[in-house]
Design a binder for these strands. Structure first.
Length: 655
DNA sequence: CTAGGGTTAG
């Protein structure tokens, strides 16, 4: 039996209202209820005016947000079996929420159901909301189940709670129950439940309902639609809904900019940011976070620095600081990153992980491991990604023993089960160290299924250590899982060519053509004077391409005098023999480096981002050139960074 | 009384 039915029969609420002036309190409205009619008629000590005082006092404290005094007054009302009106209780409950006063909140809950009092739906909704804000969803659900009647707010409160708690199935289930119950969802309901979509078919259905109920014009519903389409990678759909909006506001700008930034379309994110500024909106912390993320993905250090200037205008914001930190790490400026990290007023697991990974990717593995030790004493618990960063640091510095130690003890030390990516790091660690058999064994021992990335890691190691048989095996595994991987196709066909297996080569080339597999051309980007210059292998559209080629040829000539020999001798090179040296010459990073040298002031670091991993020849080229020109060169490839200085690279030739 | 945006890996 629930609370309501248990007390129902006793209660005859009595409502008394009186002029505000009588109370001498200007801001409140009050009426009070008493379930104790029989008691004062039989001469109990509490007089009518005393009762007014008790409720009056309670009301005053509630509106003054004085929680301790209000709770004391509540206690006295409870004794006298008196009740205030629902709005006053709502004030008190707001106050409990603000103070995270769970105990007091539960007392209010008990009180409003005591002695047969029947709170209105409005008041129970307030209590529902309170439990939701306290993250006590089970309590909220119990209360919800006990409600004699539930309106759209009751349903929406719970649906939103499940959506926010990532209990998507539950949220969707509740929506269906709501519809079955004959309660019509409103814009609040839909803007909440959209986040609970499990996929596009779900989303399409909800979108149809929204359209049918005529709610698609609501700003909140629309921005929720924009957001969820973007989160599911349907950026064009998101943009379409966004562009149709008449009133947009800042939040929806942030949604759409964030959507592109998170889907690694930094370019479009920045375009939208410019559009937003032109429309007269001022960026806030959320906007800047997304803009920084766009800079990060495009490696736009100079633009990132400009954003930093705007960041310091705002109050400190952990998420924003983390994005700033990551921007400096990913743009290869460790000095700035370190500075940002040290100045942060608050650090969470993301800040630590970002910095650790930043050190590791930039070739400072020892610093990464040292920082991890500091983190362990700081009281912040490492997570899945932190450990990944630590293992990455070990694998890229050849620290086999450290890596094995952390991998084997991660469950015991940090309570984290090794996932596919952790295994991947270990395969990398063992593979690079030449322990190819051990690496293969580890893949077969994995608790989760290896994916194409895992096998590609092994293939990379085979390439370095020139193990053709294992490379063939790994390549076949990759093509099973990812039949469109052009790089692997070409690699495999070169393995066959090397062993004169021409029939296999022909078969492979045929299945490539049939499958429509195309190799992504190598591309490098450089930021100069707020402009991004892109260089693509074989593309001659850059206005200064002729001058660049001329300069490159001269540089190569000078480097050859210093002993540079173009390295066409990679056993598993991904190009056909006769094209090799010529193609190497025009690798996009060489063009970008030369253009950077020609355009940037003397001594300024040349920073390049590229879409493919750097090849051995370009690596040697950059090392020698950095020394000859006495200039730092930083190249970011999809996995890590190369800081070239004085004829050496921060990766220690181990990438 | 119920609703929307941002950070770490690959």
């Amino acid at each position: 039996m629930n609370l309501i039915s248990r007390f129902k029969c006793y209660c005859i609420p009595l409502s008394v209202s009186f002029p505000l002036s009588l109370l001498g309190i200007s801001f409140q409205r009050s009426s009070f209820y008493s379930g104790a009619a029989t008691e004062w008629s039989t001469g109990q000590s509490t007089s009518f005016s005393n009762q007014i005082d008790v409720v009056n006092e309670f009301t005053t404290y509630c509106y003054q947000r004085d929680l301790p005094k209000a709770m004391k007054a509540l206690n006295s009302m409870q004794k006298h079996k008196l009740w205030a009106d629902a709005i006053t209780y709502a004030e008190l409950i707001k106050c409990c929420i603000a103070h995270s006063a769970i105990k007091q909140g539960k007392i209010v809950h008990q009180h409003v159901f005591s002695n047969g009092y029947e709170p209105k739906t409005f008041l129970i909704n307030t209590l529902l909301n309170m439990y939701v804000k306290f993250h006590l969803l089970d309590e909220a659900q119990v209360l919800f189940d006990q409600m004699p009647e539930r309106n759209v707010v009751s349903w929406t409160t719970l649906i939103a709670a499940y959506s926010n708690a990532e209990l998507k199935e539950k949220a969707l289930e509740m929506l269906i129950m709501m519809l079955r119950d004959g309660v019509k969802p409103n814009m609040y309901t839909y803007s909440s439940v959209l986040r609970a979509c499990n996929g596009l078919s779900n989303l399409t259905q909800l979108h149809c309902c929204i359209f049918k109920f005529g709610l698609e014009s609501d700003v909140f519903v629309r921005s929720a639609l924009v957001d969820i389409y973007a989160k599911w990678g349907e950026l064009q759909a998101a943009l379409h809904i966004f562009n149709e909006m008449v009133t947009g506001d800042l939040v929806v700008w942030n949604s759409i900019i964030g959507g592109f930034a998170q889907n690694s379309d930094g370019d479009e994110a920045l375009n939208l940011y410019i559009r937003m500024k032109r429309s007269g909106f001022k960026a806030d912390q959320s906007t800047l976070t997304s803009v920084l993320r766009a800079c990060t993905s495009l490696a736009l250090l100079e633009l990132g620095r400009q954003v930093h200037v705007h960041v310091i205008k705002f109050d400190r914001d952990l998420v924003l600081d983390n994005a700033l930190l990551d921007m400096y790490c990913k743009c290869g400026s460790l000095e700035d990153a370190n500075c940002t990290f040290n100045q942060m007023f608050e650090k969470d697991v993301i800040s630590w992980s970002t910095m650790i990974i930043g050190f590791a990717q930039n070739g400072y593995s020892q610093k990464a491991l040292d920082l991890f030790k500091v983190m362990r004493t700081s009281g912040t618990q490492p997570n899945y990604i932190t450990v990944l960063g630590v293992l990455f640091a070990c694998s890229h510095a050849g620290l086999v023993e450290d890596g094995k130690y952390y991998f084997e003890s991660m469950k015991k030390l940090f309570g984290i089960d090794p996932g596919r990516e952790h295994y991947g790091c270990m395969v990398d660690l063992l593979g690079r160290a030449g322990k190819l058999e051990e690496a293969t064994k580890l893949i077969h021992e994995m608790k989760c299924e290896p994916d194409a990335v895992t096998w590609r890691t092994l293939l990379g190691a085979c390439r370095v250590h020139r193990n053709m048989d294992l490379a063939e095996y790994a390549a076949k595994q990759i093509l099973n899982l990812d039949p469109h991987d052009a790089g692997t196709f070409i690699l495999l066909s070169n393995i066959y060519a090397k062993s004169q297996r021409w029939e296999d080569v022909a078969n492979l080339r045929r299945s490539m053509t049939d499958g429509g597999v195309k190799k992504e051309p190598g591309c490098s980007w450089i930021e100069i004077n707020k402009q991004i210059h892109a260089f693509i292998l074989g593309d001659k559209s850059h206005p200064k391409i002729n001058a660049i080629h001329e300069e490159l040829n001269q540089i190569i000539g000078r480097l050859k005098e210093e002993g540079y020999v173009p390295d066409t001798n990679f056993v598993l090179q991904d190009l056909e023999g006769e094209q090799m040296e010529n193609s190497l010459l025009y690798h996009s990073e060489k063009l970008a480096i030369v253009f950077g040298m020609m355009s940037l002031p003397k001594g300024k670091t040349v920073r390049i981002r590229k879409n493919l991993r750097i090849c051995g020849d370009c690596h040697v080229f950059a090392k020698l050139l950095a020394k000859m020109e006495n200039r730092s060169i930083v190249i970011r490839d999809p996995i890590r960074y190369h800081h070239f200085q004085d004829g050496a690279c921060s990766c220690g030739d181990y990438w």
